[in-house]
Design a protein around this nucleic acid. Structure first.
Length: 746
DNA sequence: TCCCACTTTCTTTTT
DNA sequence: GAAAGTGGGA
């Protein structure tokens, strides 16, 4: 990404002239060749930081400026909305008058658009719902219940994964059932069958369906396929290494007529195998499109020589890759810093110190820094340290706004209004706010609906007919149906923002939070307010004609990175996965321990391990000037402290590019060992320092950084975790688990 | 049907 | 230490 260098200014001035100056002034030879080769299939192998987005956007601009195609004849697919938005903006800078009408977006959003237009043919009315992971999980749990199966013996998460894997292999429920080899798979196939039926009944699709249903549509309706084949003269795919089989097939079908398909990718940056991404799609491109042109972009404009060389020395250990090495004209730069620390808290303190140091020695801003980790759970200790130091930070991922309970509740109403067949969301709100319709009643209604072959929503209106539902309960059910029915018909008269506002008012949600009176309820109310604001904003940005379904789709298909604001001056914390495609002056990769990065689950699977290695490569190549790699000897995971071993990736780095500053504790340890070499080697036990459990006694005054001061009432040390009952002066009595509660003795 | 207290799980990564 | 799930009692 070359967003901040001055070269773009010249570009902005260029207009859509036939012979475009910018084509020559802004691109290197390889990039230019890739841009002007517009005919036929093109594979661009673009290394990290080699300007692949630039090539894609210039290619689109080139096609448009030279009249090779009209905007609506261009289809460009990415994986995140952020990437799509960036691409659109950059094309707009080059050829401002030619951008509207292009299909630029994520696979999921573009395919959803296609399905809203054409899905009716395969039985999906245009208002179909999109189920996210949690909807999916809710549905699977309901199915297990229906099948009288134990949730504990059959973890819904596992089933969801199996179903998704089957879908990614394009196996129908029947095919999956036929190929099932174990009883577990057999069961999964049965759940899959019901799951797919329920989705259809509820006019809903999950994320996988968004990619698969277009294929179903194309296969059943060749004329529809033909229409889109004719339409899209130029097709471009970003991050091609992350496409799965369905995406591969869809792209191939769409490109069949004009064959102007251009894919950009880097096999070294393929990190979504677990989501069905198939590396073969990029490795076999030449085979699939025999007459394709191939271009390699190997000049890196981002990182220093040291960073690039260090990253390469790791990734070259992978066997499944095109061999290649990036080069750069940039300076040698500092060596990559590798640090060993005692635990995650020290790790966080180190990061904070480094940030402060970088501020002193180099003239940096907060947005120059990124702290990367393998799992979201690692952010906590880092956040604590940043907060203590008063460093502004921004977390990408973690709890999303749209995943908060109160937000989901209101959204659930809107989703039912948009698609009344959506039983997953209807069940979510059927007793929210509490209106005396319990599980037993819902179960009877569901049975009735199934028996009469109607939707749950329609069953609500006939509650009186359901045997076993008391008359008073049936009245409540019917009044809910009336309420929903009223708003469903109001949809045509009011914008979705107005509708949502009226609904929240009528439900008395704010009143409900106010009565609760707690700080937490107030913040929940704020979140609902924010949601209403967001809906209004969406209406304003996209015009009043936008439907509720449009808004809900957008909400469901946003990713964490889409909402990240790279202009705010804050340190960014995020997972390595989220960091793909970004760049920062200074990058910290934390938690480089065997078992965490690479993750333990991948240790015995060579392909998975290679993917972890690519993830390391992706992380390291985000850095422009400085790269810090940190590992901790002890890290709290699952409550206990496994002795962490240094990640193999650290050992694989060519030491010529590395500077290792042993931590103070490690030096002490080394010194001690030298003094008494005959003594048994033992890692210092940091836990003993921080948790002198014997010190706590009943009656003692203590301090907790959330609850304040208090007195210990009771100590229960029978279990592994010592539990304390403490009477806090402000907050009253609380039960605390010692290893988690950071209690100080006063 | 609802509420509270207790237990269990969470830790891969995401459209 | 949070969130989600479970089970007993009102």
């Amino acid at each position: 990404m070359l967003k901040k260098n001055g070269r773009h200014d010249g570009v902005a001035k260029a207009n859509a002239a036939r012979d475009s100056d910018w084509l020559f002034s802004d691109l290197n030879d390889a990039q230019r060749e890739a841009v002007v080769q517009t005919d036929g299939p093109v594979l661009i192998l673009a290394g990290a930081g080699s300007g692949k987005t630039r090539v894609l956007t210039y290619r689109i601009a080139h096609v448009l400026a030279n009249g090779l195609a009209a905007p609506q004849e261009i289809l460009a697919m990415t994986f995140t909305n952020k990437a799509a938005g960036e691409m659109r903006d950059r094309v707009a800078k080059l050829v401002p008058e030619l951008v509207s009408g292009m299909w630029i977006g994520t696979f999921h959003s573009l395919f959803a658009r296609l399905l809203r237009r054409e899905g009716e043919r395969i039985g999906y009315p245009s208002n179909f719902a999109i189920y996210d992971d949690s909807d999916q999980m809710t549905l699977i749990k309901a199915i297990l219940k229906e099948m009288n199966l134990n949730v504990q013996a059959n973890p819904p998460r596992l089933l969801a994964r199996k179903i998704s894997n089957a879908k990614n292999k394009m196996l129908s429920p029947r095919e999956f059932l036929e190929t099932a080899e174990t009883p577990d798979d057999d069961l999964a196939a049965q759940v899959y069958t019901l799951y797919q039926n329920r989705l259809r009944e509820q006019n809903a699709m999950d994320f996988d369906d968004l990619l698969l249903k277009p294929l179903e549509l194309f296969n059943s309706f060749p004329l529809v396929l033909q229409f889109y084949q004719d339409r899209f003269h130029y097709i471009l795919v970003d991050e091609y290494q992350d496409t799965n089989h369905a995406q591969y097939l869809a792209v191939r079908l769409l490109a069949q007529k004009h064959k102007n398909i251009c894919v950009v990718g880097d096999d070294d940056q393929s990190i979504y195998r677990w989501r069905g991404a198939d590396l073969r799609n990029i490795l076999d491109f030449e085979h699939d499109y025999p007459k394709c042109s191939m271009f390699r972009l190997e000049q890196n404009y981002r990182s220093t020589k040291n960073i690039l060389a260090a990253a390469h020395s790791v990734v070259k250990n992978n066997r499944q890759r095109h061999s290649k090495e990036l080069w750069t004209e940039r300076q040698q730069g500092d060596r990559v810093m590798v640090y060993a620390v005692s635990d995650e808290r020290e790790e966080a303190r180190y990061v904070v110190n480094f940030i402060n140091n970088e501020f002193r020695i180099a003239n940096r801003n907060f947005y120059d820094f990124a702290i990367l980790y393998r799992t979201n759970a690692q952010s906590r200790a880092l956040e604590d340290a940043l907060r203590v130091e008063g460093i502004p930070y921004n977390i990408v991922g973690g709890l999303r706004f749209y995943e908060r309970k109160e937000v989901k509740d209101v959204l659930a109403y809107l989703r039912v209004l948009s698609n009344p067949a959506d039983a997953v969301n209807l069940k979510r709100i059927i007793n929210y706010p509490v209106r005396g319709i319990g599980d037993a009643t819902v179960a009877k209604l569901e049975a009735f609906a199934r028996d009469k072959k109607i939707t749950l929503f329609d069953a609500l209106s006939r509650a009186k007919e359901v045997s076993g539902i008391a008359s008073r309960t049936a009245d409540k059910v019917i009044s809910l149906h009336n309420l929903l029915g009223k708003y469903i018909s109001l949809q045509n008269e009011f914008s979705s923002a107005e509708l949502a506002t009226m609904l929240v008012e009528e439900l008395g949600i704010f009143r409900f939070f106010k009565e609760e009176g707690t700080l937490e309820a107030a913040s929940r109310a704020d979140n609902v307010r924010e949601l209403l604001l967001a809906i209004a904003e969406f209406n304003n940005a996209n015009g009043r004609t936008t439907t509720l379904a449009d808004y809900l789709q957008q909400v469901t298909l946003v990713s964490d990175i889409d909402t990240w604001n790279d202009k705010s001056n804050m340190v960014t914390l995020m997972t390595l996965h989220s960091a793909k495609g970004l760049e920062f002056s200074v990058v910290f990769i934390t938690g480089l321990e065997e078992g965490l990065f690479p993750l333990s689950r991948s240790l015995d699977d060579p392909s998975a391990l290679e993917e972890e290695r690519r993830l390391f490569y992706v992380g390291a190549t985000r850095a422009k000037e400085k790269l810090y790699l940190i590992w901790a000897k002890n890290r709290r995971r699952f409550g206990d402290l496994p002795g962490g071993a240094k990640s193999r990736f650290l050992k694989e780095i060519d030491q010529r590019y590395v500077q290792t500053n042993e931590s103070r504790t490690q030096q002490l340890f080394k010194k001690k060992r030298e003094q008494s070499i005959w003594e048994q080697d033992r890692m210092p036990n940091y836990e003993d320092e921080s948790q002198e459990q014997i010190e706590f006694k009943v009656g003692m005054r203590v301090y907790h950084n959330k609850f304040g001061k208090g007195t210990i009432l009771k100590i229960n040390s029978q279990t592994d975790n010592v539990k304390l009952a403490v009477l806090f002066d402000e907050e009253g009595e609380k039960k605390l688990v010692l290893p988690y509660a950071k209690l100080e003795i006063l």
